[in-house]
Nucleic acid binder design. Structure first.
Lengths: 345, 345
DNA sequence: ACCCTTTATGATACCGGTAACATATTACTA
DNA sequence: TAGTAATATGTTACCGGTATCATAAAGGGT
């Protein structure tokens, strides 16, 4: 009753015989505190298991120490490299003594935007990171209209003027295709991602340009859409394998589809890379553990996270120059791709 | 300068010519407000795009309107039915005008518990929902020691005295195995989950008991561990298929492994259910879309979420009677399982 | 017309911190 | 040894709401 079991900064100050300002200074590592005072207070904090009330801190500071990551979980299993992005974000958040919350939205949800933005207008979070939204994302459109700070991760198109971090999809795909061509492949299949996504279209464009530059004609029956999904990658490869001129190499627009494609090849009693070279995109963690390990285009996912988070945290709301950052991709050559054998046609 | 562009409740009150208490009453739908006053204030709120400062609200109310869901993302892809659980949670959270944040922990992280619990001690959240922790979870152990409120989802063992919601793993597995036996199967393979998980052990126990009750001997080479992972389910099935007495039915302890197993069967030029009946566990959304659709044991996932969230939100910290809730599972019969054909041995 | 209940609104204190300024104590410098 | 700078601590106001209690106005019964 008299001790309502609620330890506040005043409790500690009283026990220590100081003012609460001194306690506050100790908590925030302010230099001007005598070391004996400091240790006395630290002991009391430990003894009474005192935790500052973050709500009060935020209210007082007038600026939240939290950012939010917005994810559409329905997409999670096609964008599942997101774990590495998350780790990048968390690194920065940690270093800056910020907090991270994850907000989930579903496409059916009518008033998702209100829910999301109220976290900002309610001064709970400083801004948002939005994970790989599609270009036609109503959510992003409305967030923009509502004028809340956000950084898009892995989505540069369709939101001119907004901040984003993205990777070189076009160049990456170009490099991969060129690599296959340089290995001697002439019949190269492509398993595309969903056409409504810009990254998917860029990957396809890169692929096409590489072939065009080498004067290799593209037969449209070797280009199949797999929507970034493993199952459809499997289907797509089955389709490619029954084409009149079977491809000697296949480039899948993401690793997940490459995985499905690999299954299909095995099921058809063919071998990668002996019969078919296979290349993916993303370099998700399982890529290296497939049999055979997958040649793929690596996205710098961790850095995608760090860059986006840093910008959002350090951003000054006054000078709102948007961030436009496109990171390079890298071709990782593993065992799923080889030079074409000469006795093959 | 004079208008610092910061709309607070005082701004609205001033414009409306009332005290801020009246504004507060309007916001919180308090009955005793004259309807014209109410509408005048509502208009001003809209006009000035006023949003209450949630931080101030929380501080004032002295009890946060937020709960946190703790997820170990590394496990996400084996517990990926979690989306339905999440939807259940969100339903309740919405109804109660609460907020939900998701906290991610990784197993490497040293001081995850401090990070997590500080959300509680800092009065940011009312408590935690922990998604399917393993029994030996250090995190849960420490959360308990720290005495923060939490409800475990899908983990009843190993944390006596703590609140949990779980499903009848044993009974579900028993039902599935009995079903296969009743279809005439005598050689039944089992692909087990990770033995360090209680749910996995219970499923195995249910399976074994069903066979024992029907006096069917269990040959240990038909029991393989697949750790709930798709790839290992694939491997496990390949193993089962080369056993001297090939099983006529296989029960996988989760759908993901069943999916892998299905792949293996197809790759071996056998058919489900003609050559092998296949049954899974969980009823994740893809189960119904496999070819053939998978017979499986359905977990009431949505309800798992609603029950856990309701309890945490409505829970009175005083009378801390823990919640011990075990929900029934249901056998969903689809096309991956059939009566054994008599001309089979 | 009077009293009582219901409705409608306001005044004040407080939630638990931090910012900004003031003050007191030492330390150093000339 | 005074004078200034650096260190150490305290005072006060405030962040933006809500709870509680007080007060005022309107309605209703006798």
């Amino acid at each position: 009753m008299n001790k309502p079991e609620n330890i506040t900064i005043d409790t500690i100050a009283e026990k220590a015989g100081t003012s609460k300002m001194t306690v506050s200074r100790v908590i925030n590592n302010h230099p001007y505190v005598k070391s004996e005072t400091r240790s006395k207070i630290l002991n009391l904090i430990k003894k009474f298991k005192y935790h500052p009330n973050l709500t009060a801190v935020n209210l007082s500071r007038q600026s939240p120490q939290t950012i939010a990551l917005v994810i559409q979980y329905e997409h999670l299993f096609t964008t599942y490299y997101f774990i590495e992005i998350l780790q990048g974000i968390e690194k920065i958040v940690d270093e800056c003594s910020y907090n991270l919350v994850i907000l989930n939205v579903t496409s059916q949800e009518e008033d998702a935007v209100e829910r999301i933005t109220s976290w900002y207008f309610g001064k709970f979070v400083k801004g948002f990171l939005v994970l790989a939204p599609p270009e036609n994302s109503v959510l992003v459109k409305k967030m923009r209209e509502a004028d809340v700070p956000f950084v898009l991760i892995g989505a540069s198109r369709g939101f001119k003027g907004s901040s984003f971090v993205d990777v070189e999809n076009y160049t990456g795909a170009y490099k991969a295709a060129k690599y296959l061509i340089d290995l001697g492949h002439k019949h190269i299949g492509f398993i595309a991602g969903p056409p409504e996504r810009g990254d998917a279209r860029e990957r396809e464009a890169g692929f096409r340009q590489a072939l065009a530059d080498k004067k290799i004609p593209i037969s449209e029956n070797l280009v199949v859409c797999g929507h970034y999904k493993e199952d459809l990658g499997y289907q797509a490869m089955l389709h490619l394998l029954i084409q009149p001129t079977r491809p000697t190499a296949v480039f899948a627009a993401n690793d997940l589809m490459a995985k499905g494609a690999l299954m299909a090849v095995k099921e058809s009693n063919l071998q990668v890379p002996k019969d078919i070279s296979l290349v993916g995109f993303d370099d998700i963690d399982i890529a290296a553990h497939l049999v055979p390990p997958l040649t793929t285009v690596k996205q710098p996912m961790f850095r995608l996270g760090t860059e986006a988070a840093s910008f959002l945290i350090e951003q000054n709301p006054e000078e709102n120059k948007p961030l436009h950052l496109v990171l390079p991709t890298e071709l990782i050559i593993r065992e799923s791709s080889v030079r074409i054998w000469h006795f093959q046609k």
